[in-house]
Amino acid sequence: MNREKLMKMAGAVRTGGKGSVRRKKKAVHKTTTTDDKRLQSTLKRIGVNAIPAIEEVNIFKDDIVIQFLNPKVQASIAANTWVVSGSPQTKKLQDLLPGIINQLGSDNLENLRRLAEQFQKREQGSAPADDDDDVPELVSGETFEAAANEGATS
Rank of each mutant, 00 (worst) to 15 (best):
S85T: 01
A78L: 11
V135G: 10
L93C: 02
K92S: 06
S41L: 02
I66K: 02
D132T: 04
V28W: 02
L109F: 14
I64V: 15
N80H: 12
A75L: 03
G141D: 14
I59E: 05
V83G: 04
A53S: 12
S154I: 09
D35Y: 08
A146R: 10
L97F: 11
T33N: 14
S154M: 10
T90F: 07
F68H: 07
E145T: 11
V84I: 09
V57R: 01
N2I: 04
S87Q: 04
S76G: 01
F68Q: 11
A116H: 06
L39A: 14
D133M: 07
A129Q: 07
K30E: 05
V139P: 01
N70H: 11
T32G: 12
D62C: 13
K121A: 15
K92L: 02
I59S: 09
T32C: 04
E4Q: 11
K25G: 07
E4I: 03
A127Y: 07
T42I: 08
A12D: 15
T33R: 08
I59R: 05
G47P: 01
T32M: 06
G151W: 12
V65H: 05
M1W: 14
E145Y: 10
D130N: 08
L6H: 12
R122T: 15
P52E: 03
G105A: 09
V28H: 03
R38N: 12
L97Y: 09
K5F: 13
D63V: 00
L104Q: 10
L39K: 04
G11K: 15
E56T: 06
G17W: 00
